[in-house]
Protein backbone atom coordinates (compact mmCIF):
# COMPACT_ATOMS: atom_id res chain seq x y z
CA UNK A 1 0.00 0.00 0.00
CA UNK A 2 2.93 2.28 0.58
CA UNK A 3 3.51 2.69 -3.15
CA UNK A 4 -0.09 3.89 -3.54
CA UNK A 5 0.46 6.50 -0.87
CA UNK A 6 3.71 7.58 -2.46
CA UNK A 7 2.05 7.89 -5.86
CA UNK A 8 -0.83 9.83 -4.36
CA UNK A 9 1.54 12.17 -2.57
CA UNK A 10 3.57 12.64 -5.72
CA UNK A 11 0.40 13.52 -7.62
CA UNK A 12 -0.52 16.02 -4.94
CA UNK A 13 2.93 17.58 -5.13
CA UNK A 14 2.65 17.87 -8.90
CA UNK A 15 -0.80 19.39 -8.53
CA UNK A 16 0.56 21.92 -6.08
CA UNK A 17 3.30 22.91 -8.53
CA UNK A 18 0.78 23.21 -11.33
CA UNK A 19 -1.43 25.32 -9.14
CA UNK A 20 1.46 27.65 -8.43
CA UNK A 21 2.58 27.91 -12.03
CA UNK A 22 -0.62 28.17 -14.03
CA UNK A 23 -3.90 29.98 -13.98
CA UNK A 24 -5.12 29.40 -10.45
CA UNK A 25 -7.88 30.74 -8.27
CA UNK A 26 -7.85 31.16 -4.52
CA UNK A 27 -10.17 28.74 -2.74
CA UNK A 28 -11.92 30.44 0.16
CA UNK A 29 -12.60 28.74 3.46
CA UNK A 30 -16.32 28.79 2.69
CA UNK A 31 -15.69 26.43 -0.23
CA UNK A 32 -14.53 23.62 2.01
CA UNK A 33 -16.83 21.29 3.86
CA UNK A 34 -17.12 21.46 7.61
CA UNK A 35 -18.80 19.68 10.48
CA UNK A 36 -18.74 22.84 12.58
CA UNK A 37 -22.39 23.20 13.55
CA UNK A 38 -22.29 27.00 13.70
CA UNK A 39 -20.94 27.24 10.20
CA UNK A 40 -23.29 24.57 8.84
CA UNK A 41 -26.33 26.36 10.23
CA UNK A 42 -25.19 29.73 8.92
CA UNK A 43 -24.52 28.31 5.48
CA UNK A 44 -27.90 26.60 5.45
CA UNK A 45 -29.83 29.70 6.49
CA UNK A 46 -28.08 32.23 4.32
CA UNK A 47 -25.98 33.67 7.12
CA UNK A 48 -22.37 34.67 6.59
CA UNK A 49 -19.98 32.76 8.88
CA UNK A 50 -17.28 35.36 8.35
CA UNK A 51 -19.57 38.24 9.35
CA UNK A 52 -21.59 36.71 12.18
CA UNK A 53 -20.74 36.75 15.83
CA UNK A 54 -19.29 39.32 18.15
CA UNK A 55 -16.06 41.05 17.23
CA UNK A 56 -14.01 41.19 20.41
CA UNK A 57 -10.76 42.38 18.88
CA UNK A 58 -9.74 44.07 15.65
CA UNK A 59 -11.72 45.65 12.86
CA UNK A 60 -15.20 44.40 11.97
CA UNK A 61 -14.79 43.88 8.27
CA UNK A 62 -18.24 42.43 7.83
CA UNK A 63 -19.53 45.77 6.58
CA UNK A 64 -16.83 45.79 3.97
CA UNK A 65 -17.79 42.24 3.04
CA UNK A 66 -21.45 43.17 2.80
CA UNK A 67 -20.53 46.03 0.57
CA UNK A 68 -18.51 43.68 -1.64
CA UNK A 69 -21.48 41.36 -1.88
CA UNK A 70 -23.73 44.15 -3.00
CA UNK A 71 -25.86 43.88 0.09
CA UNK A 72 -24.72 47.05 1.79
CA UNK A 73 -24.49 50.68 1.01
CA UNK A 74 -20.96 50.44 -0.43
CA UNK A 75 -21.83 48.70 -3.67
CA UNK A 76 -24.96 49.29 -5.66
CA UNK A 77 -24.48 46.68 -8.38
CA UNK A 78 -24.41 42.91 -8.36
CA UNK A 79 -21.11 41.64 -6.97
CA UNK A 80 -20.95 38.57 -9.22
CA UNK A 81 -21.44 40.65 -12.34
CA UNK A 82 -18.94 43.19 -11.09
CA UNK A 83 -16.26 40.63 -10.33
CA UNK A 84 -16.96 38.73 -13.53
CA UNK A 85 -16.56 41.92 -15.55
CA UNK A 86 -13.27 42.71 -13.85
CA UNK A 87 -12.07 39.14 -14.47
CA UNK A 88 -13.09 39.19 -18.11
CA UNK A 89 -11.47 42.52 -18.89
CA UNK A 90 -8.42 41.89 -16.76
CA UNK A 91 -6.24 41.17 -19.78
CA UNK A 92 -6.45 44.87 -20.63
CA UNK A 93 -4.98 47.64 -18.48
CA UNK A 94 -7.54 49.16 -16.18
CA UNK A 95 -8.06 52.93 -16.37
CA UNK A 96 -10.83 53.30 -13.82
CA UNK A 97 -13.38 51.24 -11.94
CA UNK A 98 -16.31 52.74 -10.07
CA UNK A 99 -18.11 50.11 -7.98
CA UNK A 100 -20.76 52.62 -6.95
CA UNK A 101 -21.78 53.51 -10.45
CA UNK A 102 -20.88 50.12 -11.89
CA UNK A 103 -18.58 51.50 -14.58
CA UNK A 104 -15.30 49.91 -15.65
CA UNK A 105 -13.12 51.68 -18.19
CA UNK A 106 -9.96 50.12 -19.57
CA UNK A 107 -7.00 51.86 -21.08
CA UNK A 108 -5.96 51.34 -24.70
CA UNK A 109 -4.53 47.90 -25.28
CA UNK A 110 -2.61 46.56 -28.26
CA UNK A 111 -2.59 42.79 -28.67
CA UNK A 112 0.91 41.43 -29.36
CA UNK A 113 -0.32 39.74 -32.50
CA UNK A 114 -1.80 42.91 -33.97
CA UNK A 115 0.59 45.84 -33.73
CA UNK A 116 -1.45 48.08 -35.99
CA UNK A 117 -4.58 48.27 -33.89
CA UNK A 118 -5.59 48.89 -30.32
CA UNK A 119 -8.70 48.41 -28.22
CA UNK A 120 -10.42 50.05 -25.32
CA UNK A 121 -13.50 48.82 -23.47
CA UNK A 122 -16.15 50.35 -21.29
CA UNK A 123 -18.42 48.12 -19.22
CA UNK A 124 -21.56 49.05 -17.36
CA UNK A 125 -22.98 46.83 -14.62
CA UNK A 126 -26.52 48.12 -14.30
CA UNK A 127 -28.42 45.89 -11.86
CA UNK A 128 -28.17 44.51 -8.36
CA UNK A 129 -29.66 41.25 -9.59
CA UNK A 130 -27.76 38.58 -11.46
CA UNK A 131 -29.57 39.06 -14.77
CA UNK A 132 -28.49 38.55 -18.33
CA UNK A 133 -29.27 42.18 -19.17
CA UNK A 134 -27.36 43.43 -16.16
CA UNK A 135 -24.12 44.11 -18.00
CA UNK A 136 -23.29 46.04 -21.16
CA UNK A 137 -19.89 46.13 -22.80
CA UNK A 138 -18.78 48.61 -25.46
CA UNK A 139 -15.49 47.99 -27.26
CA UNK A 140 -13.69 50.79 -29.13
CA UNK A 141 -11.08 50.13 -31.80
CA UNK A 142 -8.43 52.30 -33.42
CA UNK A 143 -6.00 51.48 -36.21
CA UNK A 144 -2.60 53.01 -36.80
CA UNK A 145 -2.47 54.88 -40.10
CA UNK A 146 0.86 56.55 -40.86
CA UNK A 147 1.68 57.03 -37.20
CA UNK A 148 -1.72 58.34 -36.17
CA UNK A 149 -4.45 56.41 -34.37
CA UNK A 150 -7.73 56.58 -36.22
CA UNK A 151 -11.10 55.34 -35.02
CA UNK A 152 -12.29 52.19 -36.72
CA UNK A 153 -15.48 50.15 -36.42
CA UNK A 154 -15.56 47.00 -34.34
CA UNK A 155 -17.32 43.80 -35.18
CA UNK A 156 -20.92 43.89 -34.04
CA UNK A 157 -20.49 40.53 -32.32
CA UNK A 158 -17.53 41.63 -30.21
CA UNK A 159 -19.61 43.45 -27.61
CA UNK A 160 -22.12 40.66 -27.17
CA UNK A 161 -19.37 38.01 -27.05
CA UNK A 162 -17.68 39.85 -24.22
CA UNK A 163 -21.01 40.22 -22.44
CA UNK A 164 -21.57 36.47 -22.81
CA UNK A 165 -18.17 35.80 -21.29
CA UNK A 166 -18.96 38.08 -18.37
CA UNK A 167 -22.26 36.31 -17.77
CA UNK A 168 -20.63 32.87 -17.97
CA UNK A 169 -17.99 33.92 -15.48
CA UNK A 170 -20.64 35.44 -13.18
CA UNK A 171 -22.60 32.20 -13.26
CA UNK A 172 -19.42 30.31 -12.45
CA UNK A 173 -18.69 32.57 -9.48
CA UNK A 174 -22.27 32.20 -8.30
CA UNK A 175 -22.23 28.41 -8.48
CA UNK A 176 -18.86 28.26 -6.75
CA UNK A 177 -19.99 30.47 -3.92
CA UNK A 178 -23.08 28.28 -3.49
CA UNK A 179 -21.08 25.07 -3.67
CA UNK A 180 -21.13 22.49 -0.87
CA UNK A 181 -23.76 24.19 1.18
Amino acid sequence: MSHIRKNALALTAVAALLAACSNSRFVGNEEYGTDNQRELILRQTGGDPSASGLVVFGVDRSRQNQAAAGGGSGMTVNAFLWRATLDTLSFMPLASADPFGGVIITDWYTPPAADGERFKATAYVTTRQLRSDGVRVQVFRQVNQRGAWVDAPTSAATNSELEDRVLARARELRSQSAGLR
Binding site: A20, Q37, R38, I41, S52, L54, F57, D60, R61
Partner: peptide, 30 residues
Protein backbone atom coordinates in the same frame (compact mmCIF):
# COMPACT_ATOMS: atom_id res chain seq x y z
CA UNK B 1 0.93 36.67 -15.12
CA UNK B 2 1.25 33.28 -13.47
CA UNK B 3 5.03 33.38 -13.78
CA UNK B 4 5.11 36.81 -12.24
CA UNK B 5 2.77 35.65 -9.54
CA UNK B 6 4.95 32.64 -8.81
CA UNK B 7 7.90 34.99 -8.37
CA UNK B 8 5.83 37.22 -6.17
CA UNK B 9 4.68 34.14 -4.32
CA UNK B 10 8.27 33.26 -3.53
CA UNK B 11 8.60 36.62 -1.88
CA UNK B 12 5.84 35.94 0.55
CA UNK B 13 8.24 34.31 2.91
CA UNK B 14 10.16 37.55 3.19
CA UNK B 15 10.66 38.32 6.85
CA UNK B 16 9.59 41.91 6.43
CA UNK B 17 5.99 40.86 5.69
CA UNK B 18 3.82 42.91 7.94
CA UNK B 19 0.22 42.85 8.97
CA UNK B 20 -1.93 45.03 6.78
CA UNK B 21 -4.60 45.08 9.42
CA UNK B 22 -4.80 43.70 12.90
CA UNK B 23 -6.47 40.30 13.01
CA UNK B 24 -10.16 40.20 13.74
CA UNK B 25 -11.15 38.00 16.64
CA UNK B 26 -14.75 36.95 16.54
CA UNK B 27 -16.81 34.89 18.97
CA UNK B 28 -19.74 32.98 17.58
CA UNK B 29 -21.64 29.86 18.30
CA UNK B 30 -24.81 27.92 17.89
Amino acid sequence: TAVVSAVVGAAVMAPEASAQQAPTVRIGGS
